[in-house]
């Protein structure tokens, strides 16, 4: 991977007043690369995504860390956490764009779809009204809307869910941003439409050479779309690495549990297994590993007393006190399984 880095997130922490939501999250994005940020609801993955563009809800704020936006040849990267509101507004939709979960809700019901795309072009590229409108039609065509010229003048309620998400993607890609953040882009859609939207995202990412951060709770979405994967649990990164490696050989028990719980397992003849217990409520983090209360491998003292560091080895990292031990156990057991 030689492409240049476009986004560096370092030690990002987010809190709602006194309640910590996200703790010390770091990751890098390179041009042309897709990173999946995976976790259950409440893991802090969406808050992390919103924080990158300064779109956190009222009462929630970044408490530490930086989000650096790099440009080739620019020696002083822009920190989006400390950037002023005007600077941030110039970056949003121009250099970093975002696609949200619910396409039904993320388009303004009283403005035509074409106009909602055209206004991004006018805002960032200084285009006139007529050229922006024409470009909006082209963009709608590029994301696979049939008869784009006619549909551009329609209001969102005349679009189906999948078509709306296509329109939202056209809106996000209008200015060919360097980074695209997609927050659960297919969760609200029918299964048949999900694959089409994911294909579209991957195709556009390839064409534009963008970096993409795909936020999802669904490991099935990750497989064909992303290069790397970062797993969050209770506001912390617990494992990161290349998608293939992590899927083949998960190092954190939580990642294993997530893979076992994925419905895709059913196709391989295994029954999906639910993860017992619930995510600890934000604000009362246990002193040690937050997953220990649900973990089949947790040992008293080793796991639940002191904070556990994220350990990096090569391209992979994991936050588990027993990861080395578990790996040995796994290697001992596997040959036995292979010879029934």
């Amino acid at each position: 991977m030689t492409a240049e880095q476009v986004l560096e997130v370092d030690g990002l922490s987010i809190a709602a007043g006194p309640v910590p939501l996200v703790h010390d999250v770091s990751f890098r994005l390179r041009a042309g690369e897709a990173l999946a940020l995976v976790g259950e609801s409440g893991s802090g993955k969406s808050m992390t995504a919103l924080a990158l563009l300064g779109l956190l809800p009222r009462g929630v704020a970044v408490t530490a860390g930086s989000v650096r936006l790099l440009e080739p040849g620019d020696p002083s990267p822009l920190d989006l956490v400390t950037a002023g509101s005007r600077t941030l507004a110039d970056v949003r939709g121009r250099r970093v764009a975002m696609v949200f979960q619910d396409p039904m809700a993320s388009l303004n019901p009283s403005i035509t779809v074409g106009e909602q795309i055209a206004e991004v072009l006018r805002r960032h590229l200084g285009m006139g009204r007529a050229p922006a409108a024409r470009q909006a039609v082209d963009l709608l065509g590029a994301v696979g809307i049939k008869e784009p010229g006619r549909r551009a003048g329609d209001h969102p309620h005349t679009f189906s869910g999948g078509m709306r998400q296509r329109a939202v993607i056209a809106m996000a890609l209008a200015c060919e941003p360097a980074v695209l953040i997609a927050d659960e882009p297919t969760t609200a859609l029918d299964v048949t439409i999900q694959a089409q939207i994911l294909d579209l995202l991957v195709r556009m990412q390839d064409e534009l050479g963008m970096a993409m951060l795909l936020v999802t709770h669904d490991l099935g979405v990750v497989a064909g779309t992303c290069h790397r994967l970062a797993v969050m649990y209770a506001g912390r990164l617990v494992e990161a690495g290349a998608v293939g490696e992590v899927f083949d050989d998960p190092a954190h028990p939580y990642t294993s549990a997530l893979l076992a719980a994925a419905p895709e397992n059913a196709m391989r003849g295994r029954k999906p297994q639910a993860i017992l217990g619930t995510v600890p409520a934000p604000g009362e983090p246990p002193p040690g590993c937050a997953f220990s209360s649900r973990c089949a491998h947790a040992l008293p003292d080793a796991c639940d007393t002191a904070p556990i560091e994220l350990v990096r080895s090569g391209s992979r990292s994991v936050r588990c006190a027993r990861s080395a031990e578990l790996r040995e156990l796994q290697e001992l057991r596997e040959p036995a399984e292979a010879t029934p």
């Binding site: 563009l53 110039d90 949200f100 993320s106 303004n108 805002r123 809106m171």
Partner: peptide, 17 residues
């Protein structure tokens, strides 16, 4: 508080717009 206003902000539109 709606998603579409958040979308509008995510597009980089200025607060007054």
């Amino acid at each position: 508080d709606t998603d579409y206003v958040r979308t509008a902000r995510a597009k980089g539109l200025l607060p007054l717009t």
